[in-house]
Design a protein around this nucleic acid. Structure first.
Lengths: 188, 188
DNA sequence: CGAGCAGTTGATGAGCTTCAAAGGTAGTGG
DNA sequence: CCACTACCTTTGAAGCTCATCAACTGCTCG
C-alpha cells in the first residue's frame, strides 16, 4: 500500500519500477480501479488535504518519495517543472475520458479489447512486443478496472481465445494473434 | 457546436455564460458525455494535434476564444498562469475519477443520485439553492453522461419521485425533498 | 501431500436495454 | 385563435447481457 484513500497528502511519488493500481472504494466494498501506473509515472498530485484514492502495488515496486513541501519549493525555483506536470495531467485527463467511454458505453468484449490494446500500446512505447503481453494484475483487478466481475473477464478472455484473436499462454501472458481485429473491437 | 472531435486544435475557450457538454462518439453512434462545463470553465487544453472530444452548447452559450498561439506566448510571459491551469487540470482529473466510479460500479439510482448531488453542489458554489435544481440538459444528455438510456433515466426519476426523495416540478426543474437520503444514495 | 487461492466454467436470475406506444409541450400555419 | 405537427418525456412489455451463486481445476507453498 503506497497511499490510502482518506490519508493526509504528505508525499509525492515517482514510480521507478513495477506497476501500481489506483482505486476508489465505495462504503460497501465495491471498487473501481481508475488506472495503472508504471515506470516514470507520477502519483500524488492533489488539491485536497486528503487522498481521494488508494494506490497499491501490483508487482514489486520501487518509488521515489518526495515530501510535498519540497515540491512546492521546487516549483517555486523551477517553473519549468510545472509545465511538465501540466502536460502529464492533461495526458491523464485524456486517458480518463477514454476510460469513461469504456465504462459507460462498451460491452464486455469491447472493454477487454480496449484494455489489451492499451497494454499493447504501452508495451510498444517501452520498446517491448506489442503482441506478447504481460498482465501483472489479477483478474479481479482487471474486472475492477473495466467495471465487470472476475467471472465475466474470465469468460471474455476465453471467448477471445476461442475466436482466435488472442491465445492465453498463461493467465498472465496473452499472445495477440489478430491485433487488427482487436483494435476494431476496442474502438467499435 | 464549439469544437468537434477530430478537428484541429486551434483555439482555447473560456465559458462566460451557459452550459456546454463534452462528449466522445464511437463509430456506431454511441455517445459518452464526459462532463458539463459552465461559467468560468476552460475548454481546449490538449496535447494532441486534433480534439479528442466534441464540445456542444446545451443552452445559449457565450465564450471567450483565444488562438492557441497566444496562449503559448502568454504562458511564456506569465508562468503563474500555468499554475492555475495545473490546478484546473488536477481538479478535472479528480472529477473524472469520481465519474469512473459512477460508470463502473453504481446502479441506475445511484448514478442519478450522484448526478443530482453534483448539480446541487455546483448550484451551492454559485450561490443558488441546493435543493431546487435546474437541469438545462435533455434526458438523452443525462443518459449519455451516466451510461444509461433515456428510458432508464426517466424511469429512475419517476422512482425517486415516487419515494418522495425528489419532486419533478417540470422535466427541467427538480426539487430535492430529502437531500440527506440523496447523498447517501449517491455515495453508497 | 494437502490446503488455499486464483482462475475457469456452468446455471440461473436481476437489471437494464430495446422496442413500442401514449402523454405532454412548444412551435407553426391556416 | 385554435388545430396540427414534431419532438421530448414517460410508461409498458419483452429480451438480452452481465451478475450472482456454485462447483471444479490447477497452481503454489508450506
Amino acid at each position: 500500500m503506497i497511499v490510502e484513500q482518506g490519508e493526509r497528502v504528505e508525499h509525492l511519488f515517482n514510480i521507478t519500477a513495477g506497476v501500481v493500481k489506483l482505486y476508489k472504494l465505495l462504503s460497501d466494498g465495491r471498487r473501481q480501479i481508475t488506472g495503472f501506473l508504471s515506470i516514470g509515472d507520477f502519483l500524488g498530485m492533489a488539491l485536497t488535504r486528503t487522498h481521494a484514492f488508494s494506490a497499491e502495488a501490483v508487482t514489486y515496486v520501487s518509488v521515489c518519495r518526495y515530501p510535498r513541501s519540497e515540491l512546492e519549493q521546487l516549483l517555486e525555483e523551477h517553473p519549468r517543472i510545472e509545465h511538465s506536470l501540466l502536460g502529464n495531467a492533461v495526458h491523464e485527463l485524456a486517458a480518463a475520458q477514454d476510460q469513461m467511454v469504456v465504462l459507460g458505453r462498451k460491452n464486455a468484449s469491447e472493454r477487454l479489447a480496449s484494455f489489451l490494446i492499451g497494454l499493447s500500446r504501452r508495451a510498444g512505447r517501452e520498446g517491448l512486443s506489442t503482441t506478447l503481453l504481460h498482465l501483472p494484475m489479477s483478474r479481479a483487478d482487471i474486472a475492477d478496472y473495466l467495471g465487470l466481475t472476475t467471472e465475466t473477464v474470465s469468460r471474455t478472455f476465453s471467448k477471445l481465445a476461442k475466436s482466435a484473436i488472442i491465445r492465453l499462454e498463461e493467465p498472465t501472458r496473452v499472445r495477440v494473434l489478430r491485433l487488427d481485429e482487436l483494435e476494431v473491437m476496442a474502438s467499435a
